[in-house]
């Protein structure tokens, strides 16, 4: 593992949307092999930061957006298969919609066992519960087989046990991970570095061992931000008004 290799680097980055400062003077550096948890109240700018990081290394990153990015009419199998599209030729990929490719069928069938979705493999995802959908989204990220994982609350809809198991699995399968979380306990137990954000600023960036759950709670209890964070779709638009 090349500890020295820097994957992500931001220095003094700000993003303004209208008169709302979404990211305010962010500087950080993430190296290969780091497992970083991103915590902070809603609207702190975590999603925006994740998308900004994604733009730096799109070609080696599996991104799991908050919405999951599932395609409603496709089955669980197809939604996970999407993760492998770059490894499949165009014609086989089209044929796969008519008749799933045998090799991927086998691989995805194994993967859904880990996810606990083996019963649902051929169901379209619009019929699934929120937790099940989130597991499909995790499945797709895993099936991308990339070294870097960027997850925007990837396990927020799962029950605590499942959340812990799948998060462990995600971190195990990826060399580097940056994951935004609300569950402070998960952040403290599974990551080696924690970044706390508030109002578009980084207010704490330190090894997990230096923080306690009570310490983290303190960041949440301050007065809430007046501006809710807008959805991340418009990232392009924001970048235009970068200051």
């Amino acid at each position: 593992m090349s500890e020295q290799h820097t994957l992500f680097q931001l220095s003094g980055q700000s993003l303004v949307y209208g008169d709302h400062r979404v990211l305010d003077n962010i500087s950080l550096q993430i190296k290969a092999g780091e497992k970083v948890a991103l915590v902070g109240p809603s609207g702190a700018g975590k999603t925006t930061l994740l998308h900004l990081l994604f733009q730096q290394r799109p070609e080696q990153t599996a991104l799991q957006p908050q919405s999951g990015g599932l395609v409603d009419l496709l089955s669980v199998y197809q939604n996970i298969f999407i993760g492998a599209l770059e490894r499949v030729g165009t014609l086989p990929a089209l044929w796969n919609l008519v008749r799933p490719l045998a090799a991927h069928r086998k691989a995805v069938a194994e993967l859904v066992q880990t996810l606990g979705l083996e019963e649902k493999l051929w169901q379209s995802v619009d019929r699934l519960s929120g937790g099940q959908r989130q597991r499909v989204a995790i499945g797709r990220a895993l099936y991308r087989q990339q070294p870097v994982f960027l997850g925007d609350e990837p396990v927020s809809s799962l029950d605590p046990l499942q959340a812990r198991l799948l998060l462990e699995h995600l971190l195990h399968q990826h060399e580097t991970a940056v994951v935004s979380l609300h569950n402070r306990q998960l952040a403290l137990n599974h990551f080696d570095r924690i970044i706390v954000m508030r109002d578009g600023r980084i207010c704490c960036d330190c090894p997990a061992g230096e923080l306690s759950e009570e310490g983290l709670d303190a960041y949440y209890q301050q007065e809430p931000s007046p501006h809710p964070e807008p959805p991340p779709e418009d990232l392009q638009g924001w970048a235009m008004v970068k200051s």
Binding site: F54, P58, E59, A62, L63, Q64, P65, S67, G68, G69, L70, V71, I82, G83, L85, E86, A137, R140, A141, R144, E233
Partner: peptide
């Protein structure tokens, strides 16, 4: 939604 597109490989 642009989200599903974000989970794909670039290029």
């Amino acid at each position: 939604s642009r989200d599903p597109g974000l989970t794909l490989a670039v290029g």
